[in-house]
Simulated assay, not measured.
Amino acid sequence: MMGDSIYKSTLDCMVKTLRVEGALAFYKGFLPNFGRLGSWNVIMFLTLEQVKRLVS
């Protein structure tokens, strides 16, 4: 969207994407991103619980 001048606004981009590619186009890359962020959150919370246990 930043490099192309075919869109007038963000809403215009969303409407055109919905028409051309369908609703699932908004979820491209969801699973890899969720895998990356989900695993990071699990590790962070497990580490936080261990640090809490050591401090108290």
Rank of each mutant, 00 (worst) to 15 (best):
M1L: 09
D4C: 07
D4P: 00
D4H: 05
S5V: 05
S5A: 14
I6G: 03
I6M: 15
I6D: 12
Y7I: 01
Y7N: 00
Y7L: 00
K8N: 11
K8G: 13
S9I: 04
T10E: 10
T10Q: 13
L11N: 13
L11K: 13
C13W: 14
M14E: 01
M14L: 13
K16P: 00
K16D: 04
T17N: 10
L18P: 00
R19L: 09
R19V: 12
V20N: 04
V20E: 09
V20T: 09
G22F: 01
G22A: 03
A23H: 11
A23Q: 10
A23S: 15
A25S: 14
Y27A: 13
K28E: 11
K28G: 05
G29K: 03
G29A: 09
F30K: 14
F30Y: 15
L31Q: 09
L31I: 15
P32M: 02
N33K: 09
F34K: 08
F34H: 02
G35V: 01
R36S: 08
L37A: 09
L37D: 14
S39F: 06
N41H: 10
N41F: 12
N41G: 06
L46M: 15
T47E: 02
L48W: 02
E49F: 03
E49C: 04
Q50I: 11
V51S: 00
K52W: 00
R53T: 02
R53W: 01
L54G: 02
L54I: 10
V55P: 00
V55C: 04
S56I: 02
